[in-house]
């Protein structure tokens, strides 16, 4: 079996499982979705920030695509609609930040599409602001830090690909009594933020975030598929190691 065939098997299995489970769960079956404290804390912080009129920001990272982390930018864009609820952006204090021009334009499209979906265009006048503080990670950091002048701060959500410079953003937010929630993208970002941020998702857990915040049958199917694939992967690794040790492979 070649690596190409392994790829086909994994992708085919994932696609088959995802399709089957989506249809299966759509018919009223229930998969007990994993609960994570991060979703509850995020929701309560978001509500408190809205009530107190505090600024909230969503960072989409600094790259739409990278060789090491190819899916992160796309995932951040895919997760964005979960955060852009009419309640969250009604006061005009919600902004979406990125260091990538393409991400900024796509985020704008996503925001506009979301707000045109079932809402009057007059209500969408105060939708989320899309900002591009800088075009490199450190230029973004400089722009971000000079932009958060308001004290206290509300909620900062970190999505997508970003590095250890995110520690400076989180530090600035926490100094202003804000709450930071990170679905850390790169390994360096995960390592830096693990030490400082209580509410952090790492590894494959980051892809669960939209499902945790806005559960539904498609989210449940996705989580279940991920769980099954994870178990298969772990079992394959263990069996492969054992066979290697025994000299079979």
């Amino acid at each position: 079996m070649t690596l190409r065939m392994v790829g086909w098997v994994v992708i085919g299995l994932a696609a088959g499982l995802l399709g089957f489970l989506t249809i299966f769960l759509k018919r009223g079956r229930h998969y007990p979705i994993r609960t994570h404290q991060i979703a509850r804390l995020f929701s309560s912080s978001q509500e408190a920030s809205i009530e107190r009129g505090l600024p909230r920001q969503i960072v989409l990272g600094h790259q739409l695509w990278s060789y090491s982390y190819p899916g992160l930018g796309l995932w951040a864009i895919g997760a964005l609609p979960v955060f852009l609820t009419p309640e969250a952006s009604a006061d005009g204090l919600l902004s979406v930040l990125t260091a990538d021009g393409a991400l900024a334009i796509m985020a704008r499209q996503v925001a506009e599409q979301t707000y045109h979906d079932g809402y009057s265009p007059f209500l969408s006048q105060t939708c989320a602001q899309i900002r591009l503080p800088g075009l490199t990670p450190l230029a973004f950091t400089a722009g971000f830090l000079s932009g958060i002048t308001r004290q206290p701060y509300g909620t900062l959500s970190l999505l997508g690909a970003y590095g250890p410079e995110s520690l400076l953003w989180v530090d600035a937010v926490q100094r202003r009594d804000g709450m930071a929630m990170a679905a850390a993208g790169t390994l360096a970002g995960q390592a830096a933020l693990y030490a400082y941020v209580q509410n952090i998702l790492i590894g494959e857990s980051i892809f669960m975030l939209p499902n945790l915040i806005k559960p539904g049958y498609s989210s449940q199917a996705s989580l279940l598929t991920e769980d099954i694939l994870r178990i298969i992967l772990i079992a394959s690794l263990i069996i492969g190691t054992m066979l290697k040790v025994l000299g079979v492979l």
Binding site: A14, A15, S205, E226
Partner: peptide, 29 residues
Amino acid sequence: RGILLGMALGGLLVGLRVLLTIDRPYGED
């Protein structure tokens, strides 16, 4: 490598969700 394997798994599902039109970041839900 372990973390990256997990992330690849998550990334694969994100891509498949878009391909199977379960997620539509480019349009309406």
